[in-house]
């Protein structure tokens, strides 16, 4: 079950999967997919992690696309772990992505991992403004009406840490949608410096759960 809230007058749904849905615009937004992460690590002589995270992440994205049938999809940056990862994408993943993109307005926002052109279609933007909201990868403290990603926020409640959305009156920060992604605790100074009270964390998991911040 999703959690509905408003930001700059727009009614948005935080989905339990970590994706964002904007019904009025029929817009689905996901951040930090980090597709091709295991391939990049292996290429650089690091660990040989189970090479299934791209499949799994696309599988989860597919489920959200099927459920919400969006007209527009925004991938909010760090969609690929690096530019070479786009080229290293398995054929199956490439086809799956093409199927997802077909018939939709699909925008890739530049991230710090995957700046520059992407060679698999869709529109490529540094940032994009729709109605009252601006979508960019990294939050800008001086801006408002903003939706961003980048930080992979996580919150520990009753023992287990879960990825979460962060919301205040000016901005929304999305959790990482990708499978092989670590997280930054919401009490990290990098995140607390971005949020003004009263702020809210929305936990992902079986259902989207809002929790007021800061936790005591």
């Amino acid at each position: 079950m999703h959690h509905a809230f408003t930001l700059s007058g727009a009614t948005l749904h935080a989905l339990p999967s970590g994706a964002l849905y904007w019904p009025a615009q029929r817009l689905l937004c996901v951040s930090d997919l980090h597709l091709g992460k295991s391939e990049r690590l292996a290429r650089r002589g690091g660990a040989l992690l189970p090479p299934y995270e791209t499949r799994e992440t696309l599988h989860r994205l597919e489920a959200e696309v099927d459920r919400t049938a969006p007209a527009t999809v925004i991938c909010l940056g760090d969609s690929f772990d690096d530019l070479a990862a786009v080229r290293g994408l398995e054929e199956e993943a490439r086809l799956r992505l093409a199927r997802l993109m077909a018939g939709r307005d699909w925008t890739w926002i530049e991230g710090n991992h995957d700046a520059g052109p992407v060679e698999i279609g869709g529109t490529h933007r540094a940032q994009v403004t729709l109605g009252p909201l601006t979508f960019r990868h990294i939050a800008d403290r001086s801006e408002k009406h903003e939706v961003s990603g980048h930080y992979h926020p996580k919150l520990r409640l009753k023992g287990a840490a879960r990825p979460c959305f962060l919301l205040d009156s000016k901005r929304l920060i999305l959790p990482a949608f990708g499978l092989y992604t670590g997280g930054l605790s919401v009490d990290d100074p990098a995140l607390t410096a971005l949020l003004d009270p009263p702020a809210l964390a929305i936990l992902t998991g079986a259902r989207a759960l809002p929790v007021p911040l800061p936790l005591r």
Binding site: E53, G182, L184
Partner: peptide, 23 residues
Amino acid sequence: TGRQATFSSDILYDTLRKYDPDH
């Protein structure tokens, strides 16, 4: 410090269970 570059090994375990159960 700050950002944890690593992620939980639980994620790897779950992924292997799902995609490569005989690993």
